[in-house]
Simulated assay, not measured.
Amino acid sequence: MSSTELPSVPAAHVLPQVATVRVAEGERLRSVGLPGVTLTVRSRPPRREGLPPALYVHGLGGSSLNWSALMERLDGVVDSEAVDLPGFGDSPPPDDGDYSLTAHARAVIRYLDASGRGPVHLFGNSLGGAVSTRVAAVRPDLVRTLTLVSPALPELRVQRTAVPTGLLAVPGVTALFTRLTRKWTAEQRVRGVLQLCYGEPGRVTPEGFRDAVQEMERRLQLPYFWDAMTRSARGLVNAYTLGGQHALWRQAERVLAPTLLVYGGRDQLVGYRMCSRAARAFRDSRLLTLPDAGHVAMMEYPDVVARGFRELLAEVEGREPDPGRPGAGTGSGAPTENSGS
């Protein structure tokens, strides 16, 4: 594994014509070369030495930036790193053009094997939740606990609001969509994404909205942006059709790691009703439901999600959370309903 620390303008080392990737205060980016892929890894130095490692995996169309708020709130609990999956964030496309769910999981496994950080506290959102489920199932030695925020696991009855995203997997749809939306500004696109992914889009600060627009402008300049989106969506849909030991729900049943499941009541992409099935499938699970959250609870309600993870960690380590720490909870381990307020 080769690792290169990226300066404050990291994208210049990959695509000189593309704008800067945002780095939050206290974070670092580095480029890691692995067989067949190069991953950008976002890290936040832990508050003290010796904290257990954590790895965060984003969803379709997202990036490691999606985890910055949660990473900040857990910097006294875990040693956090978040990856940009191949073709997303600041990671270039994979050498073989493979964006299947298995390929994304393989990239995460290769990084964990090469870095020697496992077993980690593994976090995944949406597509990253499906990827993390597969990693935990096939390589239990690499996963200490599993936290899934709206994991993209197969649904028999898909919500109508999720259909357009799934249609990206259909040949020709992406080309049609890009033609129909070629005059849309980055600001219009971001507003659409927020309406789809947030339970309460008004919670996004003006600064956060501005940063999102800048990131959208940067990513739209990438020549492989739509290809990565389309092929990853197709890879996820294809994974839904697999049977036997490769079926995602079958793999969920194989996960040994203690698991925290986080679902939003206003999620328009992953059905809220799936939380019950997930709680049954993962053998050692806890359920955290946030009625007002959408698809990215770790961005909308990072304090609540951080508290849920602290409770999981306290239970696993056999101790009570420190009530003096911000976001500390009671650690009941029972299904929890929280309005997120």
Rank of each mutant, 00 (worst) to 15 (best):
D303L: 13
T147M: 13
A152I: 09
P154A: 10
L60H: 12
S91E: 02
D227R: 15
R117P: 04
G271N: 15
G76C: 00
P140H: 03
T230P: 00
S80A: 15
G244W: 03
V255C: 11
G208F: 00
D96A: 13
E317S: 14
L127F: 08
G294V: 11
V131I: 15
D79K: 01
R28C: 06
L146I: 13
G124A: 09
L101Q: 03
D113K: 12
P201Y: 10
E317T: 13
L70Q: 04
R179I: 00
S332P: 03
R189K: 09
L146Y: 12
G324Q: 08
P151A: 10
T102C: 03
T259W: 00
A228T: 10
S285T: 03
G235C: 10
R231S: 07
A137R: 08
E155A: 15
L146E: 07
P223G: 07
L29F: 07
Y111S: 08
W226F: 15
R160A: 14
G50W: 03
Y99V: 04
K183P: 00
R210N: 08
A69H: 13
P258W: 12
T185M: 07
R250P: 11
L167T: 09
R280I: 01
A137S: 12
S68W: 04
T185Q: 10
T38R: 15
P171I: 03
L148Y: 08
L313D: 13
V41Y: 01
P323L: 09
A107M: 02
P151W: 06
R234Q: 13
M216H: 06
G294K: 06
A11V: 10
G129S: 08
F88W: 08
T4S: 12
P323M: 10
W67Q: 08
K183M: 09
A24L: 03
V213I: 15
L290V: 15
R134C: 07
V83N: 03
P258F: 04
A54W: 05
G124F: 09
S150T: 14
G97L: 09
V78Q: 02
S150Q: 11
L146F: 10
L312D: 03
Y198S: 13
T40K: 07
V83R: 05
T145R: 09
D98G: 00
L290T: 05
L6E: 09
S232Y: 10
G264A: 04
S2M: 09
M1C: 02
